[in-house]
Amino acid sequence: MALFMNEKDMNEMLAGICPEGETYQGKAWGTLMSGTAEMLALGALSNVSCYVGVTEKTLVIAVLETFDISHIYGKILLPFDRLDEVKIQKGLMPSQRIIKVKSGKTKIKLSLVNNTITAKIKDQKQGMRVICEALEHLKH
C-alpha cells in the first residue's frame, strides 16, 4: 500500500485510462473537492486524492481510493470540446490553483497544489502549469 502519492503510480494509473490515440501533455496530483455530484456518485463524502492529466483533447482524472491511494476508485474523462465552463482561481496558498469545470450536468472542483508533503512527484509545478494553461485556452 502506497503511503505517498508518487510518480510511478501516477504514470501507471493515468496511462491505464488515457484515451486511445492521445498522449499526456501534463500530469499532476490533486484533490477532488467534496460536494460535486460525481464525488457523491463515487461514494465519496469528503475530499479525495487524484491524479490529473491533460492530453491534446481531454481532461483525465484518476480518482484514488480513500484508504489505499495505490488503487483507482474511479475515473473521470472530460473531452475539451464538451466543456461548457472552466474557471481557474488562485487558492488560499500561493501555490494552489482551484479549477472548476462544468460539462453538461457534470461539475467538478479540483485543487492542485505545488506541495511535496503528501506526494513524491518531482515535476508537480510544471504539470500544474501545463494543466492550467491547457484549460485556460478553453475558458468561456
Rank of each mutant, 00 (worst) to 15 (best):
T118Y: 12
E65I: 09
E65Y: 07
D84V: 13
S95E: 05
I69Y: 06
I72W: 03
D84N: 10
Y73N: 11
I88S: 07
L135V: 08
V86Y: 01
R97C: 03
R97S: 07
Q124V: 14
N115E: 00
H137G: 15
P79D: 11
K122Q: 06
H137K: 15
L112P: 03
L77C: 14
V113E: 01
A134I: 11
I76C: 02
I98E: 09
N114H: 09
D81L: 07
V130I: 15
G104A: 08
L110W: 04
T116I: 05
D123V: 10
K120W: 00
R82C: 07
H71W: 13
P94Q: 03
K122R: 04
K100A: 05
K90M: 00
V101E: 00
I76S: 03
V130A: 06
L110N: 00
L112G: 04
A134C: 15
I121C: 09
K90D: 08
K75E: 11
T118D: 01
G74D: 10
D81S: 15
E136M: 15
I108D: 02
S70I: 03
T116M: 02
G91Q: 02
V130T: 14
T118I: 12
L112T: 06
K109L: 14
L112E: 00
P79L: 02
V130Y: 15
K125I: 04
R129H: 14
V86M: 03
K100C: 12
L64G: 04
I117Q: 07
L135C: 04
D123E: 13
D123T: 12
V101G: 01
K75R: 15
M93D: 10
F67H: 04
D84G: 06
Q126V: 14
I88M: 06
I121M: 11
K100W: 09
R82V: 13
P94K: 08
Q96D: 09
I72G: 10
K107Y: 10
K109Y: 05
K87P: 02
L92A: 15
I108Y: 08
K122C: 04
S95Q: 08
T118G: 13
K90N: 04
F80Y: 14
I69D: 04
N115P: 00
G74R: 09
S111C: 09
F67L: 13
I98P: 13
G104Y: 01
K120E: 07
I99H: 00
R129C: 02
K75M: 14
L78H: 05
R129I: 09
V101I: 10
L64C: 09
E136W: 04
G104E: 02
P94I: 07
G127K: 09
T116V: 00
R82A: 05
V101R: 00
I88W: 01
R82M: 07
K109F: 13
L64R: 09
D123W: 04
E85H: 11
T106Y: 05
L112Q: 00
